[in-house]
Write a protein that binds this DNA or RNA. Structure first.
Lengths: 233, 233
DNA sequence: CGCTGTATTGACAACGTTCAACGGTTGTGG
DNA sequence: CCACAACCGTTGAACGTTGTCAATACAGCG
């Protein structure tokens, strides 16, 4: 099966590649559809492939020994994911699950060196990406150490709005099905607390809730909460 | 100034290098003594050097806009640190401060490519290190999301015991000056809570406290707490 | 039409923070 | 050498945010 290069050509990741190289790359790729709720790979599995998200939305989960779950991060269209081997790991450190129906490209991990060689800027981009992830993780640790729950939830909602927002009439819709439980797992709290916070926000006109839905009506207000709306100087 | 290769020869990082290459590397390095409490570099500074800790102990800090501090990680002898440039960053994401009197080697960041070239296994090791850090960060996020304070403190103490422990008579001494505040900043709590927990442990015979001191008497007991001493099956 | 998963809300408990006071140790300067 | 300040640590008490438990409601789906 041949994958048309137009589906990836506009991604910044491949912008600098010539068509021949790109075609060669795509020839070794497999496209796959992932229905909502299905896992692309599971935590602890042998890392035999790495992936690119073309369409849809994934969440990367980790499960603790006692069964609790956290969402490590969301994967957005255009993102590479599951490149554990690039970090010298044999297995996937988390589970990648489709939050919405998704389409991915898969390559065998053996091809990673080749992949990098035919697109040297990829090595740099990958390093940058990892660096960003590390920084994000530290930001999250800092927030969980020092900030109260409402502010953390505000931060997550603000980020989701900018990374997965879709303008819709009077506000911005989070463009994939998301539950209170999801938000709780992203912020390190319980769905109860999230529900209370969102209810409070709704009565203030900041957001509009709904079953697996979230519409942000006042992004500015949310961002104010996220950046410490209390003490300003 | 010439640095004798015997000071680094036994480090796993340089084990595979031949003496000539090693000498060349050391020729471009500067050795420096850092007194306790002094910073090697500060958060936000331009990343002009990368470093190796020869002796002593460093803590890497981040400060929030509102002045709160967290300890991102400890740096132990033999660790590379401050290689922001390898992650395509221009500035240091945190501050590296000497927790005890320390000795470091410094290289200009421009030499990083050369560094890697003359020691290819370094590229791999570095990737591994970064991967580990990312994983550690996620572990910490997971713990802060799901575990109570005492367990997190137990985990930190257990880790410190294995990475910076020194046998001393009836127990294991944490080998650098550490305050309750430090432990609080590593676990995302307050020095008060840490003090209470350590007092409780002391009365159970698990540890022995002291001013900027910590002696672990029953590592097993601590580890039991860290791994959920409550619910076992 | 009943079942399952999601969401809301109240009551309550608790863990941990905040506020406060105090004691001990270390280091400094007169 | 002593007095004093600065820092570190301990402990008590009160408060509050947030988690836990529980009951109910609602939507989607077979």
């Amino acid at each position: 099966m041949r994958i048309d290069r137009t589906v990836v050509k506009q991604l910044p990741l491949f912008a600098k590649m010539n068509d021949a190289d790109l075609d060669r790359l795509l020839d070794s790729a497999t496209a796959k559809r992932v229905p909502q709720g299905e896992a692309v790979f599971e935590q602890g599995q042998n890392a035999i492939s790495f992936f690119l998200l073309l369409h849809g939305r994934l969440k990367v989960l980790q499960v603790t020994e006692d069964g609790q779950q956290i969402i490590v991060r969301m994967v957005h269209p255009g993102d590479l994911f599951g490149f554990a081997k690039a970090l010298q790991r044999m297995d996937y450190p988390g589970t990648a699950m489709a939050a919405a129906e998704s389409v991915i490209l898969c390559w065998p991990t053996d091809l990673w060196p080749q992949f990098v060689e035919s697109n040297p800027s990829l090595a740099i981009t990958t390093m940058q990406t990892i660096g960003q992830r590390l920084e994000e993780a530290h930001t999250r640790i800092r927030e969980m150490s020092t900030q109260e729950v409402e502010r953390r939830v505000a931060h997550v909602v603000a980020r989701l709005t900018t990374t997965a927002g879709k303008k819709e009439g009077s506000g911005i819709r989070i463009d994939f099905p998301i539950t209170r439980q999801d938000i709780a797992e992203m912020t390190g709290t319980t769905l109860h607390t999230v529900s209370r916070i969102l209810s409070a926000w709704e009565s203030k006109g900041l957001v509009e809730g709904g079953r697996q839905k979230l519409l942000v009506r006042d992004l500015n207000g949310i961002m104010l909460l996220a950046n410490g709306g209390k003490e300003r100087d």
